[in-house]
Design a protein around this nucleic acid. Structure first.
Lengths: 169, 169
DNA sequence: TATTGATTGACAGTATACTGTCAAATTGAT
DNA sequence: ATCAATTTGACAGTATACTGTCAATCAATA
């Protein structure tokens, strides 16, 4: 085996965090879909449902801040959840531009039922690591995501969600 | 501040690895695009270019295995790289189904020029962490991606790329 | 009150990322 | 040599994810 000049290896990709993040995201989604197959729900749809349950009567813009999810895409996600009967969109009386989001009974039931499957999926993602390493990785990732929050187009603004509580639907 | 029942928090999302992976991928892409703005190249396009340089004359299927990238999507990625003049697709004489991939001169130059910007992007992703933590995170992620390799639809098969060397273009 | 500026949801456009299908071509077994 | 199974690239369809634009609406202010 001849030795290779640096030009001929893939190190410029494989060892880099960007590649590892993309790969891990790919794997995480794959595991989620597999474990939750019978529910036909994507990770993002799941996150949206949890957020709508947590913040009943939230509007789409605030929801996008709460799950750090692009507003342009969120519309179609909500559409799909509405089509499946898990979410209702009601116009606000306060602000005619706004449509407020509510979980339907079916949505609430689905969320309760899917929880254990989601938990199993989350566990599987980290399963290959030793328990101590799982904690370390999760802690470091949490830090990193938090410290890099402002970088992405849609920074997480968890506190935004509380505002809607002061207003009438 | 009243205490909340577990139903009313977002813990079912925020603290979970799946959410952290998605968020981190989002941030990583954002940083990459920003740092490499003047080159108009996406992370995946970059990875494809590096792989084609590393494995001159590789075909699309093997390329997808080398960067763990879905074959269905790879077609359009290559199309865009071809349109930009960074890649050439030549039919194989051995196998009439196959189209072999080559970096153009412009592609090689681009790759050389973009390298420092990619490095800066990669560094920025981990910058908020202490140096020791960066190493720890990268090491754990590498392990996890490797150990979960088979889970995703397109497992990384770095060794696949070597096969084309034994054949004539 | 009239106007300016900001917000909201919708949309068009591009780029991943996956599932599944298909025809053409190749390979392997008989 | 022929037929079956596989491989390859292409495509259709769905679902994120981003940039940018737009009209309707609302809020702030002159």
């Amino acid at each position: 085996m001849p030795s290779k000049p640096s030009d001929v290896t893939m190190d410029a990709v494989y060892t880099k965090p960007g590649y590892l993040f993309r790969r891990m995201q790919q794997i995480a989604v794959s595991i989620f879909i597999e474990e939750c197959r019978e529910f036909d729900l994507t990770p993002v749809q799941y996150a949206a449902l949890v957020a709508i349950r947590t913040h009943t009567g939230i509007d789409a813009t605030r929801l996008s801040a709460v799950i750090a999810f692009d507003r342009s895409t969120l519309g179609s996600v909500i559409e799909r959840l509405e089509a499946k009967g898990y979410v209702e969109r009601k116009p606000s009386t306060d602000d005619k531009r706004v449509k407020l989001l509510y979980l339907t009974k079916a949505g609430a039931i689905l969320l309760r039922n899917i929880m254990p499957f989601v938990d199993r999926a989350q566990a599987r993602m980290l399963a290959p690591l030793k328990p101590a390493d799982r904690k370390t990785l999760t802690a470091l990732l949490s830090q990193l995501v938090d410290l890099n929050n402002e970088v992405s187009r849609v920074p997480l603004r968890a506190e935004d969600a509380l505002e809607h509580l002061g207003k009438t639907g």
